[in-house]
Amino acid sequence: MHPSALPLVLIAHPDPASRELIEAQVRALQPGARVQASADGASVLAGEQTQAADLLIVAAALSDMRGLDLLRELRRRAPARRASCLLVDAEADSASVREALPLGLSAYLTRPLSAEQLGRRLRSALPQASEQAAVPPLSDYLHDRRTDNQGAPLLADIRAAVAQCLRADRCDLGELEESFAGEPQIAARLISVANSAANYQGAACQSLAHALPRLGVKRALNLVLSLAIQRNARLADERLLRQARAATGQAQRAAELALWLAQRLGLDGESCYTAGLLQNIGELALLRVLQDWLDAGGELDEPTLERLLAEHAAGFGSALRAQWRLPLGLRQLIAAYYALGAGVFSREALLLNLTRQLVELPEGQAPASLADERAVRLLRLDLALLDDAPLIPARS
């Protein structure tokens, strides 16, 4: 089935956490669905000029108009097309329900949304596939998903951690940071949301430790839960899972080493840690997309897997960091991990480049052997510091 033949779901909701929860449920129930989410009605109307949605999920109050007015305008534009509509409101008072009745809603949901309630309504509203979708060529599939993917998988049982926090009498930000610090996907998404227009508070947020106070415990937990319920949040294929564990372990080693070096040099340790943690998130995102490919009926052998990781991981990473609008400074540190081009670099960028060289140092080779490397010379490091660096071995 061509991608354009897959069902299109338009989500209009002003709250980013609610949008993510709804999108996660849609993708879990209808993996092939195309989902477009926005905070305002104008974006939906613009999209509807060229594409016919199969399902509309609209909040009663948008940033630029009432949800009922948006649905009314869509009905006026295409009276013959009766896409399913779900309206999400703070309360279902009798006047609001009477006003919505002529629009032929499939459901009228009240906040706060529960995953169970939303899932039940979506199951009845989402169009059911009438045929088994053909598996597209792998090259086309990866091209389409490079700029439309959900990011990295989660390796820990995050839902259990979230549930434990929700059951606790109190859960502070320090506990959340400790629980989620080793998950690249969670760190990146919370940083991204914390830097969104609604949360922006001057200086860009560069780390999980900076993001959590802006978001607060409740919102952070809701965001993490929306990540945990997404389709393939945890990989099912053992080969992909092994690769993901190795990649996450390498990222954790890089993050811890970057933090250690930054602390000794008096540099920004949190930003260096985050850049080390996120430097290979493209590889992780690609593994998750390949799990979707296998679930759709595709086949994948080990040599092909290795080739795809070598050819596509960097592109997936670049697209993902841009999609999440991570701060420019953080993206520059991640880029410096792999290469130093021409120009002037911050000391943190040089440190990240050195971190990669230390992480990739062949077994038995002393760190001081890097004395002539550009990053070492520009940082003017004492070689004794390199010999003291904690080269954490890879976990088998």
Rank of each mutant, 00 (worst) to 15 (best):
L71C: 13
A236D: 15
N232F: 13
E99D: 13
R356H: 14
R321W: 06
D382M: 10
V224P: 00
R145D: 02
R307P: 00
M1Y: 12
T50H: 13
I191S: 01
A17I: 10
G329F: 04
Q150N: 11
G329R: 14
G202S: 13
Q357T: 03
I281V: 02
E283W: 00
G269C: 08
Q206N: 09
A209S: 11
L225W: 03
D372C: 08
P7T: 07
A37G: 01
N195D: 12
C85H: 00
L259D: 13
A60K: 00
G216E: 07
L259F: 11
V44L: 12
P3K: 12
G276A: 09
L300K: 11
S130N: 12
L385M: 11
P362I: 02
A160E: 15
Q49F: 09
A28C: 04
R231C: 03
G119E: 02
L173N: 09
Q128H: 15
V97H: 09
A17F: 07
G32F: 01
R380L: 03
Q323E: 12
S84R: 10
L68S: 07
G67W: 01
A209Y: 01
R66V: 05
E116L: 14
G341T: 11
W293V: 05
A310W: 04
R253G: 03
Q25T: 12
L126M: 14
A203I: 08
A258G: 10
A5M: 13
A52F: 06
S396Q: 15
E73D: 14
